[in-house]
Design a protein around this nucleic acid. Structure first.
Lengths: 227, 227
DNA sequence: TAGATTGTTAATCGATTAACAATC
DNA sequence: TAGATTGTTAATCGATTAACAATC
């Protein structure tokens, strides 16, 4: 079932193509919506239409993890959703700590959608004495100097970095020293971590640049059409 | 130079493969860093090493937009950066409006990295009477009911949506009615806009799910190794 | 049963990489 | 000049799509 191909890790992550991994949250969201509407069954054709991909691709993607459907019927929404949740590690009560109690950190700390899916921010840290001791969404902000010690006493799986870019690497090192398994990085800088630690980067600036590129291309197209 | 292939737009955006588009901000960031260090020249080999891609790919990517290098020398950092900035529409003073003055909206409004690159938030809107009239980073929050009228008087290129998912589509419609050209959407919902409007979605939840998936896979790997 | 739809194999298509002539 | 490195064409590799037997 779970293949071994991991000789380079460029295209595949533990045998699963990264292109497929990126589609999994989309399936999860779609199935959640269907489940909320109490829809019972769904076909690869219907899922594909909503995802704007090909039905074959839906079946191909899912078949990497198992056989979740039934010929002539399709997929039972509740069953497929629970399987996808298992695959994604959702609803497993994942503990997280957040470093950086600035605007962005506070926004992330207050974001309800994570908690809904079992991702819990257990503690918040900052470096600024004016922020330490304050309360963010019912959690007292701790001194970042206590970070590694805290993690040794209260292990967490994911560390969220919402500090300025200049502090991010140091924080990452402390999170790793504290035994964190994954880092979710909002600072606009490429972090170095041991390969035992998973890393996911939120590229806000890059996203805006891509939008800007598309705008520019569209303008040029309109300009060329006028001629 | 700028190709025409746009029959479906699935893989290509105005003739440029979307895989290439996604790498452009990476080149931009790298070249900015080199320029800040006053490095004069850079080869495709060096750029590739930093991007963790293949030197051929760097040359292939850049050649879609023009010939910016010189045999035996490589690329002049300042020139290549200015060309990439042009391609991305950076430093052109792009006007934006932001809707949603909650935690996330305030974080985005205060993010300095955008302004540095010429992306200016001209006005901020919210629906909540308790927020309207307050000041965020020197801008008074306006009533979202004035949004379309405001845009007709003060045109902007990009609308940023930082509202809850439930309000996002309505806001998008108002932005479109106001003549906005692109939407940068932080609400976790798929928006419908006319195809004349560019759309870029920031998937915070999806990013966290992908990290969770990677963690789960790595755990399973370790578990299997132990046996 | 007849119709529908899966899971999987084969065919196609696109993206990445290698190779090399051109030339600074 | 000799060495280096581009821009581009050809080869490879991976991802997507089509096709279809299996079967509910």
């Amino acid at each position: 079932m779970s293949a071994a191909n991991n000789k380079d890790g460029k295209y595949k992550y533990k045998g699963i193509p990264l292109t497929v991994v990126k589609r999994l949250p989309g399936y999860q969201r779609l199935l959640s919506e269907l489940a909320a509407k109490e829809v019972e069954r769904v076909s690869s054709r219907e899922l594909a239409a909503k995802m704007k991909i090909n039905p074959s691709q839906v079946r191909q993607d899912l078949s990497l993890f198992g056989s979740f459907g039934q010929q002539g019927y399709g997929y039972r929404v509740s069953y497929l959703l629970s399987e996808i949740n298992k695959i994604l590690g959702i609803n497993a009560e994942t503990k997280m700590v957040l470093v950086g109690g600035g605007q962005l950190g506070r926004a992330v700390a207050n974001y309800r959608n994570f908690a809904k899916r079992g991702f819990i921010i257990e503690a918040i840290f900052d470096r600024d004495p004016r922020v330490i001791g304050r309360t963010i969404d019912n959690r007292v902000v701790r001194d970042v100097q206590e970070l590694t010690a805290y993690l040794q006493a209260e292990p967490a799986e994911i560390g969220i970095i919402c500090t300025p870019a200049s502090a991010a690497q140091e924080v990452a090192d402390q999170l790793v020293a504290g035994g964190i398994k994954g880092i979710w990085n909002f600072a606009p800088v490429a972090l170095k971590v041991p390969e035992t630690v998973c890393l996911e980067h939120v590229h806000l600036g890059e996203s805006l640049m891509i939008l800007s590129f598309k705008l520019k291309q569209k303008q040029e197209e309109l300009f060329n059409q006028k001629k």
